[in-house]
Amino acid sequence: MNNIYDNEMKIEFLSKSSNEAFARIAVAAFVAQLDPTLEEIADIKTSVSEAVTNSIIHGYEGQIGIVKLFCKIAENEVFIEISDTGKGIENIEMAKQPLYTTKANLERSGMGFTIMESFMDEVEVESTLGIGTKITMSKRIKTNNKEENFAVTAVRREE
């Protein structure tokens, strides 16, 4: 039973800000198979939006590059990896500080990493200057009504 939901998906798209909505909606649709609550979906969508925006605004700084999005589901946990080959982060600790932003002129709030860290269970940042940045985050979806769902699925299969 533990492998029923195991699944993966991968998307690559150009670093255009019009793709932010596409990325978060695609992830939300993929995660839907775990039957998350509306709040869990909102948390995931917001975190994906932050990571993708970072790649577009900071990683590529308006240049056209490729943002890679990889999602994996293992049991009731979702893993999301968002990476770019942009300029990289000089000081990750500093970048994670609430309200810290290098783009205050664009009215960036400096809350991106703070949001990811409080909305997801785990967030990891790997970055090398001139090579790019990879953000890995995970969230466990609570399994309140899962028993019931399994039962329904089993009945449907038998039919």
Binding site: T46, T53, L106, E107, R108, S109, G110, M111, I115
Partner: peptide, 13 residues
Amino acid sequence: TFMDSAGIGLLIG
């Protein structure tokens, strides 16, 4: 129904 940190920046501005 959706807002990320760009919305925070927008409102504070």
